[in-house]
Design a protein around this nucleic acid. Structure first.
Lengths: 160, 160
DNA sequence: GCCGATAGTTGTATGCGGCAACCATTCCGG
DNA sequence: CCGGAATGGTTGCCGCATACAACTATCGGC
């Protein structure tokens, strides 16, 4: 029959496992890069992505939407990044309330270092994987996240 | 060529996406079950699993190892669960330092409620998935977590 | 019976994240 | 062109999750 509850419960268990794995993974980061708390890296990376892609540079508000984080959280995180010299704020000439975020050279370097570190770890952990398996997993993971979020990101899309 | 760094970086990005999705998912929980902080549920569930399976009941130490959490974290989490009436501690007759953990009826009920809630959400989010896709994803996810953790759980296994 | 190992608890600190209140600026309707 | 509503951002305050270190109580072997 098509209920599938058992399958979903197993999936749920494995999601928990994955969270555990990610926690361990991330606990290793500070040892290598004491200055960059894990959560901060995602934001750093997103700033980098956003600075390159839309018309204008990266604004805090949009950044918050893209990360699904509260503006206050972004504000603090960005403040930390600025204090650490990884990100710079420049006044938005078009709107005195906003500022445009971008990576500093140090920020780019740090992002690249941390990414390389993560990549190494992954390469080691996944050394038995065939490329097509990796690709399949990535595709399924993408779909999973998208479907999980579909209920929530309506407002975000609508706000655009 | 076989480097695969680009593929891994894409995977990394999607792992971040997934963490975002999970965060949103979990932010919904308190609305339904105010009394059970999300992190606590994993522990509750693990106690349930462990109580049923090994020779003896569930001890804090083993619980910590299974969850890859610090004993102090487990101690606090369990204390919360006990205060909420979801878990009971019974003195281990064989070791005065330890106690055995088990779910109360209320704990079983709560776990079952929360699991049903999560299952509903998943069923909704994954309604377009074919059973075999779900199974494939679950299998890959399992393998991924295992491989990611393989570097870390050596000590845990060795300690057994 | 003493001493080292062990199970658990508690003190303290940090990262992450939300909500509400607030400030400054911008935008819009009259 | 002015005044009030909307908006971008920051700050205060909170709670959860987690770790490390110090401590307590017990166990186990010699």
């Amino acid at each position: 029959m098509t209920d599938g509850s058992a399958a979903r419960r197993e999936l749920l268990a494995h999601v928990r496992e994955m969270l555990r794995a990610v926690r361990l993974f991330k606990n290793d980061l500070p040892a290598q890069h004491p200055a960059v708390p894990f959560g901060t890296v995602s934001v750093l990376s997103m700033i980098d992505v956003m600075a390159a892609e839309p018309p204008a540079g990266c604004h805090g508000k949009e950044l918050a939407a893209r990360c699904s984080l509260d503006p206050s959280t972004i504000s603090r995180t960005v403040a930390t990044l600025v204090r650490s010299g990884l990100v710079q704020r420049t006044a938005d000439p078009a709107d005195g309330r906003a500022s445009v975020l971008s990576l500093t050279p140090l920020g780019r370097q740090t992002l690249s270092d941390v990414t390389a570190w993560a990549d190494d770890r992954l390469a080691d952990a996944l050394k038995e994987w065939r490329p097509d398996e990796l690709a399949a997993f990535t595709a399924l993971l993408r779909r999973f996240s998208t479907d999980l979020m579909s209920r929530y990101d309506q407002p975000l899309e609508a706000a655009r």
